[in-house]
Every structure is written in structure tokens, then in C-alpha cells.
Amino acid sequence: MHELSITMSIIELAQEESDRRGIQVSAVHLKLGALSGVVKEALLGSFEMACEDTPLKGARLLIEELPVLIFCRTCEAQRPISSVQLFCCAECGTPSGEIVQGKELEVVALEIEEWDRSPV
């Protein structure tokens, strides 16, 4: 179980960006590949607690899960696999270990609240 340390890295990264840009982060958008070795639920479970006592307190973690895509030499295209237990092209069944997507663990965007200061 290494998700807590990964959660801390996510928060650190978001905090660095928010300090540098002088913004208040309300949500962190993360891309998580099916082969990243990290479990979504464990990240979500630890995020709120790990944000306490940081400027990110109250921020949300939004995770987009990315399925594995391989390059299929028969189809000559990127294809999904049958399952993570069977690295074969889901279309034609050709085995392939050429992973083109699925290892991502990436903060892609930060959401900030912009206060509308114009008179109501």
C-alpha cells in the first residue's frame, strides 16, 4: 500500500503549482492508467485526510481512469486489450505487449475558483 505517499506527491505537486501561480486550487484532475500500479479508491480515500493542514484543504480529487491500449500489428492500429489478464487485441485477438497507454499517473489540470468581482 503505497497510495498515501503517492497522494502526498500529488498534493505537493499541486501546491507547488498553486504557490507559483498564486492561485487557490479547488480540484486536482488526475489521469490514472490501469497499469500504473496505483488503486483509485485508495487515492480517493487518502486525499481528503492528506489535504488537511495544507492550502489544498477542501479540494477535490477527480480521477480519470485510462484503460490499457496496445499497438496491434495485425490491425496496424491502437486497440484495447481483452482484459489485463489477456494482452490480446480486443478486435482480432493478436497478442501484443506494445503498451501505448495504461501506465499514466499524471496531474493533468488544476481547477481554481475565480471570483466574479463585478457588481451584482
Binding site: A109, E111, I112, E113
Partner: peptide, 10 residues
């Protein structure tokens, strides 16, 4: 809300 693109490997 406004989105700021970051794209950084954790």
C-alpha cells in the same frame, strides 16, 4: 471554476 493545464507526472 477554471481549469489550468499542468500535465506533470506524479
Amino acid at each position: 471554476p477554471r481549469l489550468i493545464e499542468v500535465r506533470k507526472n506524479v
